[in-house]
C-alpha cells in the first residue's frame, strides 16, 4: 500500500489535480518536492534509489567499507541540510555524486589517508601525461600482458594498481568505468571541463597500461 506522504499533487493541463506516487517521479521532481515539503517518504525514496550506486562508489573510492558507511550517511545528511540549495531542473545524480565526493575527501583528510602514489615519476596528476602507446595497446588484437595471469591474480593486481593512481585520475577512472557516468556528468561532479575529464581518463588508462607492461616484464625477468 502506498504511503500517503509519498504522493504528489500535480496539476495537469486540463486543470485536474492528479496524485503521483514517488516511484513514478523523476529524480529531479522528487528532489524538488523534498526541497519544498520535506516529506520523509520522498527522502526515503531518494535513498532507496541511490544507496546501491553511491555506496559502491564510496567503497571503491575510500577503499574501506566502514568509512564508506559513515560517508554515505554524511552525504545524505548533507542532502537533507542543503536541500534548499537544490535548483529546479538541475540533474540530481551529479549533484549527489558531488556531495558524496566532497564528503569522502573531507573524511580522507580527517582520518589521515594520503593520496595514492603516482605510478610513474614522469608526468603530472592533471592528465598531461604522454599519450604514446595507449592507442596501440587498446587496439591490439594480441593478448595483453595481463591475459597471462590467473583471474584472481589479475583482479588483485587491478585493485592494487588503481589504488596507486593519483587521486584525481583514480576518481575520474572510478566515475567513468565503475559508476557508468557520462563525460558530461563527471565534468559536473568534478567541476572541471569535459576535456579535462577525457584527458584524465586517458592518463589513467595510460598509467594502468604502463604498469601492466612493466609488471609483466619484471615478472617475466624474474621467471627467466
Amino acid at each position: 500500500m502506498a504511503n500517503h506522504s509519498a504522493l504528489s499533487d500535480v496539476t495537469r493541463k486540463d486543470g485536474i489535480v492528479a496524485v503521483v506516487e514517488a516511484d513514478e517521479m523523476s529524480d529531479e521532481a522528487l528532489m524538488a518536492r523534498y526541497r519544498d515539503r520535506g516529506d520523509e517518504a520522498d527522502y526515503n525514496a531518494l535513498i532507496e534509489r541511490y544507496q546501491q550506486e553511491i555506496y559502491r562508489y564510496l567503497v571503491r573510492y575510500l577503499g574501506n567499507a566502514t568509512l564508506a558507511d559513515d560517508v554515505f550517511q554524511d552525504t545524505f545528511l548533507q542532502i537533507h541540510q542543503k536541500r534548499h540549495t537544490y535548483e529546479e531542473g538541475r540533474a540530481v545524480r551529479p549533484w549527489i555524486y558531488a556531495i558524496a565526493s566532497h564528503q569522502a575527501i573531507d573524511t580522507m583528510r580527517r582520518v589521515g589517508r594520503h593520496s595514492a602514489r603516482s605510478l610513474s615519476a614522469n608526468g603530472s596528476d592533471d592528465g598531461e601525461t604522454p599519450r604514446d602507446g595507449l592507442e596501440a595497446l587498446l587496439e591490439s588484437t594480441a593478448e595483453g600482458p595481463l591475459a597471462q595471469l590467473q583471474t584472481e591474480e589479475r583482479r588483485e593486481w587491478v585493485r592494487r594498481a588503481i589504488d596507486t593512481l593519483p587521486e584525481t585520475l583514480r576518481q575520474t577512472l572510478i566515475l567513468a568505468y565503475y559508476q557508468d557516468l557520462k563525460y558530461r556528468e563527471i565534468a559536473e561532479i568534478l567541476d572541471v571541463p569535459v576535456g579535462t575529464v577525457k584527458s584524465r581518463l586517458h592518463a589513467a588508462l595510460q598509467k594502468m597500461a604502463e604498469k601492466a607492461a612493466r609488471d609483466h616484464i619484471s615478472e617475466g625477468d624474474e621467471g627467466a
Partner: peptide, 15 residues
C-alpha cells in the same frame, strides 16, 4: 576491441 582491453586492465571482479 578497446572495451575488451580496458576490461582486462580495470575489471577487479566486483560489480
Amino acid at each position: 576491441r578497446t572495451r575488451s582491453q580496458i576490461g582486462l586492465l580495470l575489471n577487479d571482479g566486483c560489480e
